[in-house]
Amino acid sequence: MMLEVRKLTSHYGRIQALKGIDVIIEEGELVALVGANGAGKTTLLRTVSGVQPASAGAIWFDGRDITRMAADKRVAAGIAQVPEGRQVFGPLSVEDNLRLGAYRRKGENPAGDLERIYTLFPILKEKRNQAAGTLSGGQQQMLAIGRALMSHPRLLLLDEPSMGLAPLLVAEIFKTIQELKKLGTTIFLIEQNATAALSVADRGYVLETGAVVLADSGKALLTNEQVKQAYLGM
């Protein structure tokens, strides 16, 4: 088991955002987490990456308890998060953004990794010397994913990668996600676009007001009446 989240709770001040979450991700899996706005999806991801503290419960990664580990150490341990809204370093160049992705692997030559990212996203190579803030939304999303991949993550956390993108770009991002899975990256994907997410996922979880209400294979969830009504608009 690569990631095991057990009875995890988290608070913003006195407001409880996560109410005892159990999630399991096996090596090589693509797991989707769907749910409405405010269900706690982003909070769960932030708690796994360590930028949001857990109040109780535990997070195990690779057989290690990382519940109290600092966020920067979790990157070194192999967890990389692509945050909601891209969060690229706007004034820095595209290439600097990517190099910073490899911050935890300093000493190693990142040239090969840069080439790998540029093969995956050729547009980034074209714009390598431009300030990241001048890229379009879709290009920034590719950059955010590329930056996360530069750390050689064993577990990639994706927060709403399709948000605010044109349909054509959404398709491209999802194609990339499937490619990454084929390359062996374990992926935990958060999406409001439940149809797209569940169609590519091995398994899925449905989150409602801070608790998991359904867990099944991606296909099964897609045809689940409850999910269809609540999230797929059918």
């Binding site: 070194a76 990389a80 370093f89 820095l92």
Partner: peptide, 12 residues
């Protein structure tokens, strides 16, 4: 520029 993103790439 972005403290959250810096944390997420592993900057202490």
């Amino acid at each position: 520029f972005n403290t959250l993103a810096a944390q997420l790439v592993g900057v202490n």
